[in-house]
Design a protein around this nucleic acid. Structure first.
Length: 539
DNA sequence: CGAGTATATGGTAGCATATACTCGGTGCCCTACT
């Protein structure tokens, strides 16, 4: 099968970009694929072309109903691909009946849905009777970003894949650090996936960080900065409330600005999105709710008024600038107190009572119970049950096989304690990501090297296109000594922090990601004099 | 943690200041009511 020919037949493509052919071929050969590519790099085609060739049913998990609609609309105009359907709470009963009868008659089709639909037994059972040839997870970083507390059904996609007869899986995302990639692979149960990473470094985006002391100065400087940058751009802020404050201040400066956040009415959100897309508004002041599905390539700047929770989110958000390759800016404003130890909204402390009840209920059933049924039996919100199952499963207290949850032999107290520890460990890791954001904000070295290093790409020389480079501060890092005892990617063990993996090495320090504690920067001197680390035997 | 709001205090009137408390972000879905 010639992939290029298939892409031409399905979508009218005259050529393929680097990485596209590799990913499509792999999917066609039946391999699982994880593709990390920026928006606008032709990610959707990676599954659309194989789906057209394979026929049958392609399930596409998409986080937002608005995105599902966009995809359906885009595909409906292509005669060469299977018919697209959206399966969500806004789909009319009549339309769903037409979808099921078409698919059950054997017509090829795409089914776009959110992970919550796959938590429904009726949906899953009906899909399982169809020939699902391809399972796609769009915006796959949501597994790691949202699965742990906000939308726990994201962590259950692996079970859904299994239930659907283990079709090949294609996971797509625009940004993912090495540990996030690993988590996607693990949670989805990908088997020796082909990993395609393209377009990570975005040299046309200038990086800049501004430290502020008082809140009043920050507000003034942020407005000043956005006004000075000019053109089309995004201003990300930390709370819903200040979206309107800043939008107002920018309008007073004569800019065409709109506010956007998750608490606005649906029509207000739609209007802001559309105004930005059509160009009647230049600046959107938004919380992190704004972003997915923006398809403007000429965004000239992304300014952050408050610090995102992790470099992963930051890179995702600034990646919305300059997709046309033209010069663009990413400016981060911060105050030292933005990194308070208890930055709000960590993963909520798990409810011990819920953990206990879930474990007790599952323990009653010897052969195991379906999650959907478990949700029905307990008089608790579905989300909390799912989150408890996720934690207990990660703690090794519950096992899930063939869609059935069963309990491992241990006391209820042991199970609960283990689940609480898993949750606390996840919170430590999350907090360490915030610390890495501090590292970015406060580094005197090249900002781009710091960010790319975090994301797993080495930049040997300073980029020359960030504030520290321009100030003449950044130098090429002193190379790690000859005969490095702990080379990058090696697995190490720390007396107190347990197992980890070396992310980067310099002459005076090592950055290590510990499984249970998160990111830690260790001084080489301490590592050597205290013998803090031992090299794990290679697997 | 920090910002913003609600209640309490002090001295005997309205109000300034202190202390206590709450909330902060991302979306699916379903149900009850217009």
């Amino acid at each position: 099968m010639d992939v290029r020919e298939a892409a031409r037949a399905a979508l009218g493509f005259s050529s393929l970009r680097p990485g596209q052919e590799e990913a499509m071929s792999a999917a066609l050969e039946g391999r699982d694929v994880l593709a990390v590519m920026p928006t606008g790099h032709g990610k959707s085609a990676l599954y659309q072309v194989p789906a057209a060739v394979l026929g049958g049913v392609t399930v596409v998990v998409s986080p937002l109903i608005a995105l599902q609609r966009d995809q359906v609309r885009a595909l409906a105009s292509h005669p060469g691909v299977p018919r697209p359907w959206a399966l969500n709470s806004t789909s009319s009963a009549r339309r769903l009946e037409r979808m099921w009868s078409s698919l059950e008659a054997g017509d090829p089709g795409f089914v776009f849905l959110a992970p919550e639909q796959l938590a429904r037994e009726d949906v899953l059972a009906r899909l399982a009777t169809l020939a699902v040839r391809l399972f796609v997870v769009d915006e796959a970083h949501c597994i790691s970003a949202w699965g742990h507390d906000f939308r726990p059904d994201y962590l259950r996609l692996g079970s859904a894949v299994e239930r659907l007869g283990r079709p090949r899986v294609v996971a797509l995302t625009a940004t993912a650090s090495a540990p996030v990639r690993e988590e996607i692979v693990e949670r989805l149960g990908l088997r020796e996936p082909v990993v395609v990473v393209r377009g990570f470094n975005r040299p046309n985006i200038h990086l800049d960080v501004r430290r502020e002391v008082t809140d009043g100065d920050k507000r003034r400087d942020v407005v000043e900065c956005v006004a000075a940058l000019g053109g089309r751009g995004l201003l990300y802020v930390g709370t819903r409330k200040v979206t309107t404050t800043y939008a107002h201040a920018l309008r007073e400066r004569g800019l065409r600005a709109a506010a956007y956040h998750g608490g606005l009415k649906a029509d207000e959100r739609r209007a802001a999105h559309e105004q930005f897309t059509t160009g009647s508004v230049d600046v959107v002041v938004a919380t992190s709710a704004f972003g997915m599905g923006i398809d403007r390539a000429d965004v000239r700047f992304v300014v952050h008024e408050s610090v995102p929770a992790s470099p992963d989110s930051y890179y995702q958000e600034i990646g919305r600038a300059g997709r046309d390759g033209e010069p663009s800016s990413a400016v981060l404003f911060y105050r030292p107190e933005d990194f308070g130890v208890h930055r709000f909204h960590g993963a909520a402390t798990p409810d011990v009572d819920v953990l206990r009840r879930v474990f007790a209920e599952v323990s009653k059933d010897d052969p195991g119970v379906r999650l959907a049924e478990l949700r029905g039996r307990l008089d608790l919100p579905a989300r909390r049950v799912t989150r408890a199952v996720n934690l207990l499963e990660q703690a090794g207290a519950l096992r899930v096989a063939r869609s059935r949850v069963s309990a491992v032999a241990m006391t209820h107290q042991e199970a609960v304690d283990a689940a609480v520890e898993v949750s606390e460990s996840a919170e430590r890791v999350e907090r360490s990501r915030t610390e890495m954001m501090r590292g970015y904000a406060e580094t005197t070295g090249c900002r781009r090297r710091f960010l790319l290093g975090y994301l797993g790409e080495t930049l040997d020389d300073p980029c020359g296109h960030c504030d520290t480079c321009e100030a003449g501060l950044s130098e090429a890092p002193a190379p790690a000594p000859e005969g490095e005892s702990f080379p990058v990617d090696s697995r190490v063990s720390h007396r107190q922090w347990g197992d980890g993996i070396v992310l980067s090495t310099e002459s005076d320090r090592l950055t290590v990601l510990f499984e249970r504690e998160g990111y830690r920067v260790l001084s080489r001197e301490a590592v050597e004099s205290e013998q803090l680390l031992t090299l794990a035997r290679p697997a």
